[in-house]
Amino acid sequence: MIDTADNSLATSTASYPIVVRDLGHWFGEDEARKQVLFDLDFAVDAGKLTVLMGASGSGKTTLLTLMGCLRRVEQGSVMLLGSELHGASEPTLVEKRRHLGFIFQAHNLHDSLTAMQNVRMGLEVHGERAMAHWQDAAAHLLSALGLQERLDYLPAKLSGGQKQRVAVARALVGNPDIVFADEPTAALDKDTGAVVVHMLKQLGRERGTTTVMVTHDNRILELADRIITLEDGRIVDDLRRP
């Protein structure tokens, strides 16, 4: 489901970082093949925080992975930052992912790397140029997330919340155009969760960074610019805040 304004803008997709059209997706083969997304149409506003909601199995995570170039688009179209993902080659998908930031529910930090080094991995993918001041950039972000005393700690010596904050810093250090986040505040306390969401909102205002987030956290819902609700692979509600 897509509102009237979005339909009119669909012809000029350049102003939207993500435009989804007639998107369908299946899992399984032959008789076990099951459709999980049905004819989705919507566009994501630049610089805004869009929340995907829905019960478990509603298709929100699948939708997130399709928009994030982590799965191949089988039916319909996903235009990401001006590029069509349907039929895109693997190197194109890899290149596109470098413009994205991912925050996973599980932090997935590398256990052999310190907090600084884990954050560095978010920058190193962009090449030598991006690495010029990596220590300043990484330290600044980690400090903003309250980890200034833990820069050289290995993940094993960090709490769950601290690890998640390092993962947030890793996702943001490369100045991504879009951040995809899956329950990013689940492991964070109230204050830190608020810091992360406000940071994402601030990035949206200052740099135009777009955030698409899967969450059930009511604290975030209050801050969302738009809430899209899925049910059984279909959009059943699309609420925008003024």
């Binding site: 982590l70 890899v94 290149e95 992912r97 991912f102 599980a106 997935n108 590398h110 256990d111 978010g122």
Partner: peptide
């Protein structure tokens, strides 16, 4: 042992 970390790096855009 590092399959999840490698998958994370793949998601970030490492070839």
């Amino acid at each position: 042992d590092h399959i999840r970390e490698y998958a994370t790096f793949k998601a970030i855009g490492y070839p």
